[in-house]
Design a protein around this nucleic acid. Sequence first.
DNA 1: CCTCCACAGGAAGCGCAGGAGT
DNA 2: ACTCCTGCGCTTCCTGTGGAGG
Length: 397
Amino acid sequence: MQTFSEMLSKPTIFKERNVLFPDYIPDVLPFRQAEIERIMRWVSPALKDEKPHNILIYGKTGTGKTACVKVVKKKFDEMNSGAILAYVNCRIYNSRYRVLQKIIKDYLPELDKAGFGVLFMYEGLMAWVQKKAINLVLVLDEVDMVKDLDELIYSLTRSNDELKSGSIALIGISNKLTFKEGLDPRSKSTLYENEMVFPPYNAEQLQSILKQRADMGFGEGKVSEPAINLASGIAAHETGDARYALRLLLKAGEIADEKGLLYITDKEIDLARKTVELDVAAETINTLPQHQQIVLYGIAAISLEGSRYSKLAPQDEEGTFILSGEGYEAYSKACRQFGRKKRSARWFREYLHDLEMLGLVTMIESGKGMRGHSRLIKIAYAPAQVKALVEKNLIAR
DNA sequence: CCTCCACAGGAAGCGCAGGAGT
DNA sequence: ACTCCTGCGCTTCCTGTGGAGG
């Protein structure tokens, strides 16, 4: 058993661990200067007491949307004008009520008493904006999470007609390109005043981002060039997600620490990828409905035991393929084991389909040697780990 | 050739919960 | 408060597919 001081005095490869975390915003964002300047230009009217433009920012996860806006906010705040740029994460504050409440809490704490209705908060906010002639820019990050978005947008933008002084503008950030469909045309047109799309980073860009962070996080020359290239290649191949790339780097650092290494090579990155992949898979597995987890468990179990028909299945890749029939048997057995009532075979196929969509299993058409249309199933992740994970989830309740 | 097997996936229908309307 | 309706998860039933085996 180690003591805390022993742990803390252990040599570490990290120099500044924080810079590898997803919420860290560097002073300079590579490849996003143009985007930052555009946002600055659009919000700048607020600094000379005019109403700025509404903006909608699109882009996949890890393309730097939030980071850019935060950089703009920092510069905005440094101007020390009367204008305010408020940031709200709608994943947490996911309704009109909660968004209003959050703003009030941050800027009008004297009004922050529980139990006031939406109308009261709204009018309090308006009175404050008008009295102090504030130009308020409201950033709604992950705006697609807001349940009553139409009402929120409508009440906030329409309020500009009523205000005699001051103004309210919106910056929406979303990573779903499809969320606009469900919107009321009126709120659509206000939000779409200015639209901006953040493209994913390509491999070279990710490479230089990782280089920058690696130098800051570990010190120069601590991460080998092949390691950087591998990590950026993996992330670029996925979705160009910088957050994922950084996660690989952080995990590789932790692995290096465990092994007492002072240098990160592509071998550590490769190990990191496996654990990060499994982490990501574990997150989706944990949120899966019970029976889909049991299906997965059954398939994992039978993959470990060995498929009865495995000799019939193609052996071109490693990993065991199983037949859907024996998959259903395994699922039924798992249901008995966990004390759950089993679903019909028809629904089992539907579950399999869902699991395939989530990338947790892969299925191929059975070729020769099999009768009719059948499918061969294989789990995408290490069966032993998957099995243990589901077991933990289901035994707890 | 025909029949059967082992499965895929569509259609209909059922009970239930949660929301809208009154 | 109440009904009504709708969507959802699921079962049951059914048709289709294509090699295996007689």
